[in-house]
Amino acid sequence: MTTTAEPLDAPAIVPGVYDIPAEVYHADPVPGGSLSSSGARKLLPPSCPARFKWERDNPPPPKKVFEVGTAAHKLVLGTGPELVLVDKARWDTDETKAKVAEIRARGAVPLKRSDWDHVHGMAAALRRHPIASALFAPERGQAEQALLWQDRATGVWRRALLDHLPHPTSGRMVVADYKSTTSSSPATARKTVFNYGYHCQGGWYLDGVEALGLARDPAFVLVMQEKEPPYLITVVQLDHESIQLGRELNRRAIDTYARCVETGHWPGYSDQIELITPPAWAASTHHEEYM
């Protein structure tokens, strides 16, 4: 089902698909709090619950480095913040700083001429790609749909913001997520998936799709596109083993979140003295230089 933003103000939230602004989603629309995929990853090493809670209570301002990715999402998905070209050679003048600050304050994304050209080039390249263009075709589904559901084991509310939610079909549902990156080569793509926890994201999104009865046995793919010409694209599908590994990590994060909420204790990296041993490279260097 699809609802509007109004029911989110009601005392009782019901599981479902919501068409709400991204800023409402990221502010957490569930009274009492919910857990997203990115939040779940923040609960686990190399992060910790204490850092998760701090960042939840003190949300950092948007990082400028992410604005190009946000702009690319806007042009690829057809939804998102307004993009504004600030065609100035220098952004360090008082006049330009004030203009950029005003643009960001109203929720829009300011772009330098080079970034403006890049994101439009990326969108054009994606539209020429036979698979990527089909995955995000407007007639195939709806862009940026929020899923809200409860974890059966703990009662924790979970949420996900899908780049594109396909309409139901007789075939297997393929959930696609768009990522801008420095390299989309297949060898690099595999490292990127596990370095950034995209296998956890895949398991999280598929959990939501299945929990809401939107599809059985859906697949998860990443459309990875480089931010420099010729804006190369690789579409990768996460296999069952990858998704299962992500789901196991997600379960650990959900259980950790539930325990922290119940006890009010959000531990840091460690509550005990940690014994440090030399890494292999340090021991090897020592023996080569002094032995």
Rank of each mutant, 00 (worst) to 15 (best):
F66E: 12
T234A: 12
L85Y: 05
S34W: 01
K63Q: 12
R56E: 11
D57A: 07
S133C: 11
Q237P: 03
D255E: 15
N250R: 14
D57P: 07
A280Q: 13
E226G: 05
P7I: 01
A98Y: 08
G213Y: 11
E210F: 02
G16S: 02
L214F: 09
L238Y: 05
C48S: 11
T93I: 06
H73M: 01
V14L: 15
S38F: 09
G171R: 14
K99R: 14
W91H: 15
G155C: 03
G32D: 04
E210V: 09
H240W: 05
T285N: 12
R90N: 12
L238G: 11
D9W: 11
H129P: 07
A146L: 05
P11F: 03
Y198T: 04
M1W: 05
D239W: 04
A12V: 09
A153V: 05
P110F: 01
A211W: 07
R152W: 01
P138V: 00
L44K: 00
T96Y: 10
G121I: 00
L35T: 01
K53A: 11
A187P: 00
L212R: 08
D151Y: 02
G246T: 12
P267M: 04
K112H: 08
E102P: 03
G80F: 00
L232M: 10
E67Y: 10
L111F: 06
V235A: 01
V84D: 09
R90G: 06
G155K: 09
E23A: 07
L245P: 01
S270M: 08
Q272D: 12
T4C: 09
A176H: 08
H164Y: 00
A105R: 14
W281L: 13
F220Q: 05
G16L: 00
L126C: 10
L44D: 05
E144W: 01
P60K: 11
H120D: 11
K74M: 02
W54C: 07
L245S: 06
V261W: 04
V193P: 10
K179I: 11
D92R: 01
H129Y: 00
Y290R: 13
I276K: 10
G208A: 10
G69R: 03
G203R: 02
V24L: 15
P46R: 05
A153Y: 00
A89W: 08
V100A: 14
S36C: 01
L161A: 05
I276N: 06
L249K: 15
D177L: 00
V223K: 07
E274I: 13
E82D: 11
V193M: 13
I233M: 03
A98C: 00
E55A: 12
H73R: 11
I20E: 04
Y269W: 06
E226L: 04
W204S: 05
H26N: 09
K191Y: 13
L43F: 02
R216C: 04
I254Q: 08
P62D: 12
L249V: 13
A153D: 14
D255A: 12
P278K: 06
Y25A: 14
E288A: 14
V261K: 15
Y178A: 05
E23Q: 14
A132C: 04
V174T: 15
R252D: 05
R56Q: 13
L111N: 09
T4R: 12
P46A: 01
F52P: 07
D163R: 03
